[in-house]
Computed example of a mutant assay.
Amino acid sequence: MIDYSDLIGTPFVQDGRSKAGYDCYGLTKEIFARYGKDIGEYWCCVDDKAKINAIYRGAVANGRWQEVDYKHGEPIPVPALVGLRFNAPPGCVNHTGVYIGDGKFIHTRERIGVCVSSITAPPWNKQVVGIYKFIG
């Protein structure tokens, strides 16, 4: 079991990649690194709004991630990437988190920093675009 308690409350920092602050992808990288998995940096950044969508679509298209059919009973591995659409057009992924088991995911929010939320609780349950396991 990986301990995340040292991350809770770490502030949100745009493009953050350290304990001084994380953005959602920086936190995702940190969690996967704690599991010994290097998921890489994003590679196709047109602007800030396009970053996460580019990561998500590019990684899935390039076979680095495989979708988990959790809606039909496939178990969600720990860790797994949670792609979310929050106040964005349909089909767009603009927030990521990491599934950590027991129906929870860890992510970071601008106003409160790193936190753990229930994947089935509003507002998150309607925002999940997909859940993906890393296959390298």
Rank of each mutant, 00 (worst) to 15 (best):
M1K: 02
M1R: 05
I8P: 00
T10V: 14
S18F: 00
G21F: 06
C24A: 01
Y25D: 06
Y25S: 01
T28V: 07
K29C: 08
K29S: 07
I31W: 03
D38V: 14
D38M: 13
G40C: 09
Y42D: 05
V46P: 00
D48P: 02
A50K: 04
I55G: 01
I55T: 06
Y56V: 01
R57V: 08
A59Q: 13
V60D: 07
V60T: 14
A61R: 12
G63W: 01
R64M: 13
Q66W: 02
Y70F: 15
K71R: 12
H72A: 07
H72Y: 07
P75Q: 10
P77F: 10
P79L: 06
P79I: 09
L81W: 10
P89D: 08
G91R: 06
T96Q: 01
T96G: 01
V98E: 13
Y99G: 08
D102M: 05
D102Y: 14
I106H: 14
H107R: 10
T108L: 08
T108V: 15
T108Q: 06
R109G: 04
R109E: 14
E110C: 11
G113T: 12
C115A: 09
V116E: 15
T120G: 12
T120I: 08
A121Q: 12
W124H: 11
N125G: 01
Q127Y: 04
Q127I: 09
V128D: 05
K133T: 09
K133W: 13
